[in-house]
Design a binder for these strands. Structure first.
Lengths: 238, 238
DNA sequence: GGGCGTGTGTGATCTGCATCACTATGGGAC
DNA sequence: GTCCCATAGTGATGCAGATCACACACGCCC
């Protein structure tokens, strides 16, 4: 099999290494088999748009490898990034289930592989396999919680520095050490960070300086080193 | 049957006048019957809390009559109102399906009746009746869209006046006349409006004056009269 | 009637952040 | 190497809206 962009291709969902607690994992053998039949796999370059806000839903994308930026924009061109998805995430599920236009734009931030499941096939499968319907309901309610977190952050968190601290904390949960330190590979530009926390590029730049001066973090090349998550938590306190 | 708070009691979901396109309506006869068996009805006074943010989910509430304020607060006491629900709405569904704590507080704004469905009963029913699982998934994805609207408003809409105009538009959709005018009964305090659009009481007060001066609306007692929805839409433009 | 509590109107001030306008840096193409 | 473009740092300015501080209006209870 061709492997464009230097990627290794995963061609069978039943043996996929990303399999774990995700939406379509650990289904009954029949459902798993059915899923494997209706999905088609593809590799996308950096910058590829899986779908665009406002389009009619064609189907869902299960991300196997790579990172995807989910964003929404106003008519005047202001953009907010609502989520950075990575492997295992299911994209476009809400639009597909409710048959409303995609509510966000999904753009590959690096080359990666995705499985596409057409809307019709999914909805049919859903009728034949009640277990999948329950799974999807659970996935949707998880999505809803994430959205609510976002609402709380946008509506209740006052200052950019609080939101920035919150972001650093969320980045560092996976790599956190027992002493509260953490290291994260920084792959976003200041502009993108600004679109996540809802501020301007300049303010993010100043936040980086400020947090470095306050010893909350330091930068070693592209690696963000966080001294103490506790200190960040004190800034957040919401 | 006793009718506290001067309310008429609805005691049978199968003959309920609110029945329409809502979540638990137009189910198969068996599912409808089952639903009617597991639900219990209750009447709540103004100010009653159906559930509180952070509590473990006990079950869902189907609102028959009355209005419910859904809100979330930060530790420092800042509150935002995320939705005002009325009859037919299903409350607490997300928490129940994902078995996570309620993400909002639900408070009766006026006396009203609600049906309660315990979590266990609902989850069992969901396994026996796949149609209900699909319905719930669709309801959840609708909720998700509403949440996303909120995110867009909070994240992309800059000024309080835009958000206020947006709010007036949403209030007046149901009563809108063909000439673009509308009348709405105003039941919220300035403080509550402030908690919806994420600003302060004083700013809301000034917005009322400003919009009245600009002939965008006027106040006749507790009735809000909107001259032209078009004019409001020009303010929003996002 | 007086007193109290909740809601409202509106001025005066203060400040955090957007905005504008630069310069600086750094990596890739050639 | 040089050029260029995307990204990043930082000062100066302005302003919208939060905050503070009142005064007033209304309903309700005794």
């Amino acid at each position: 099999m061709r492997a464009p962009y230097g990627l290794t291709i995963l061609d069978n969902c039943l043996t996929c290494p990303v399999r774990s607690e995700h939406l379509f994992c650990n289904l009954s053998p029949q459902a798993g088999q059915r899923l494997n039949e209706i999905k088609s796999t593809a590799v996308y370059p950096k910058g590829a748009m899986l779908f665009i806000e406002g389009q009619q839903p064609r189907g869902v994308f299960v991300l196997c490898t790579g990172k995807v930026k989910l964003s929404t924009s106003s008519r005047e061109g202001k953009t907010i990034i609502t989520k950075i998805s990575d492997s295992g995430d299911v994209l476009g599920l809400n639009a597909v289930v409710s048959n409303r236009p995609y509510e966000v734009t999904a753009e590959m931030m690096e080359p990666g592989q995705g499985n596409f499941i057409p809307r019709d096939s999914l909805m049919h499968m859903l009728k034949d396999h009640p277990e999948v319907a329950v799974r999807i309901a659970q996935q949707l309610s998880r999505n809803y919680f994430t959205a609510y977190e976002e609402i709380r952050t946008l509506g209740l968190t006052a200052s950019p520095s609080e939101k920035f601290a919150k972001l650093l904390l969320s980045w560092s949960t996976k790599t956190a050490q027992s002493d509260g330190s953490a290291q994260v590979k920084l792959t976003l530009t200041h502009e993108e960070v600004a679109e996540i926390i809802g501020t301007t590029r300049e303010t993010v730049s100043r936040l980086f300086s400020e947090f470095k001066k306050k010893q909350l973090m330091q930068l070693k090349g592209a690696t963000l080193v966080i001294r103490s998550r506790m200190a960040l938590e004190k800034i957040v306190q919401s």
